[in-house]
Amino acid sequence: MSGPALIISFFVLAVASVASALGVILFRNAVYSALSLILTLLFLAMFYLQLGAMFIAIVQILIYAGAIMVLFLFVVTMLAADPRDPDLQDRLPWQRGVAAVLGLVLVGALSYLLLSGTPLNEAARAHGSEALSQVVAQQGNIQAFGQALFHGFSFAFEVTSLVIVVAILGALVLGRKA
């Protein structure tokens, strides 16, 4: 895919992902918000495919849109029994306007910085055998990812397992009947 098709698909994905992200914070019903977030995550996975990060796209769909969001939906359906919607009576009604103004400031500042900041240094690009596209062309996408993970970041990868064990133990402790 190249040229106009790429640009059209970028804009379709950009509009769709921003619209579904707005759905997350605008829907009153938490189930709709969760479904909208799943849509956003799927659109982001398509962005990743467009950027050539296939492994990340697949992991995004499997883990985020699959596992994490199923967990979310379970909890939403478990807690939705509460008849009164917490968003109906607002104690601090002025905070919506403040939040909108602060959001506009944030998006303006981020866009200004991203558009006017120093262009990325050409020297920062990886070259030769270090370059991702080289390894992908020679060995394939997932092999390139695995090589980078286990050659440069194997300690971080091991620490990741510790994080998961701590999370499992924490959930067990919190979920026990008091």
């Binding site: 992200a21 997350v24 914070i25 944030l106």
Partner: peptide
């Protein structure tokens, strides 16, 4: 940046902890 800002506004405005 747009998605990040939408997330920030969601944290500021909504009061349902799940959202």
């Amino acid at each position: 940046a747009l998605l990040f800002t939408i997330g920030t506004i969601g944290v500021l405005v909504r009061r349902n902890p799940l959202i």
